[in-house]
């Protein structure tokens, strides 16, 4: 009888824990969305931010976030996929492979503020660039590369071995087999992983504080010359992203509508990340269906 009572109590506790977690999530989301969504307007998204006056928007921050994400993924995806190919197809078990694994593990567990400090040291001070988009993107590359390598390696390893054997048995070399058989089959997995990683990169702030900076110069969105200082496309300009903006506004903001800006920005940030996650799921299953479908 005693043990049955204990069993009931324990089950109750577990149910309570699960309920708490669901409630926390509901609380967080409803807080962000109910407070933030009313702040979002076309004006909010399309005007520049103001440091002292009311009514500032987040146009530049939003653009910076997507632009840094784009540059980061432009560097990380090829590097990560090729690194994944190395780990899954070429690495022979032994000391060197173990060492590379340890490196990836270490990079993955580095606090992002430490990545930011390294970026400050190398990409900001040593190069003399100052706070730049490219410096931020390179710091985020360090932050993101272990994820991309792992995702790619897993996706490549999950390609059925018979596909690889079929190609090799036809007298095709390993590299061509990788390019034409293995990578196409691993593509859905890599794509899903890359989109999920994008969400993580999009929300990251600590690694950008000391690399891409806390300010944005005046931008002219009509200026598409990437070498011009007022062009949004210039990668050698400082750029405050949305995540960094949320932090900066909350810690040092002196404009009267700090709360409204923070609310709206958080809502947009969370909705963007949510969008990345949902897209990852959708794209992953859609591409998977398309590739394996029998017409």
């Amino acid at each position: 009888m005693n043990s049955k009572v204990a069993d009931r109590i324990a089950t109750g506790v577990f149910i309570a824990i699960a309920t708490i977690i669901v409630l926390v999530l509901i609380g967080l989301f409803s807080f962000i969305l109910f407070r933030g969504v009313p702040q979002i307007s076309w004006d909010f998204i399309t005007t520049t931010s103001s440091t002292v006056r009311e009514g500032g928007g987040i146009r530049d921050q939003l653009f910076n976030s997507f632009y840094i994400l784009f540059i980061t993924m432009l560097i990380t995806v090829p590097l990560g996929v090729l690194g994944g190919v190395y780990m899954a197809e070429y690495a022979k078990p032994g000391k060197i492979t173990n060492f590379i694994r340890s490196c990836i593990e270490l990079l993955a567990s580095l606090p992002s503020i430490v990545v930011g400090m390294f970026g400050l040291l190398i990409f900001v001070n040593s190069t003399g660039w100052g706070y730049t988009i490219i410096g931020g993107a390179l710091a985020l590359t360090i932050f993101n590369i272990p994820v991309m390598v792992r995702v790619s390696e897993d996706a490549i390893r999950s390609v059925p071995n018979v596909q690889k054997e079929a190609s090799l048995a036809l007298g095709i070399n390993h590299w061509h087999t990788i390019k034409t058989v293995i990578l196409p089959s691993a593509f859905p997995g890599i794509l899903t992983g890359a989109i999920l990683a994008s969400g993580r990169v999009f929300g990251e702030a600590a690694a950008l504080l000391f690399t891409a900076g806390l300010s944005t110069p005046r931008l002219d969105y009509m200026n598409w010359n990437p070498f011009s200082t007022t062009s949004p496309l210039n990668i050698f300009r400082p750029a405050e992203t949305l995540s960094v903006h949320i932090w900066a506004v909350n810690t040092n903001g002196i404009m009267p509508d700090v709360e409204a800006i923070a609310d709206g920005s958080s809502a947009i940030l969370v909705l963007s990340v949510l969008f990345f996650n949902l897209t990852a799921r959708f794209v992953g299953s859609a591409v998977h269906r398309k590739i394996t479908a029998s017409k």
């Binding site: 059925p160 018979v162 596909q163 054997e165 079929a166 190609s167 090799l168 048995a169 036809l170 007298g171 095709i172 070399n173 058989v181 196409p184 089959s185 590739i291 394996t292």
Partner: peptide
């Protein structure tokens, strides 16, 4: 690689490419 071109192999389970 050249050897496998001259000595082809067909496996137990059909394994066409996707």
């Amino acid at each position: 690689i050249a050897l496998r071109k001259e000595i082809g192999m067909v496996f137990q389970k059909p394994n066409p490419f996707p």
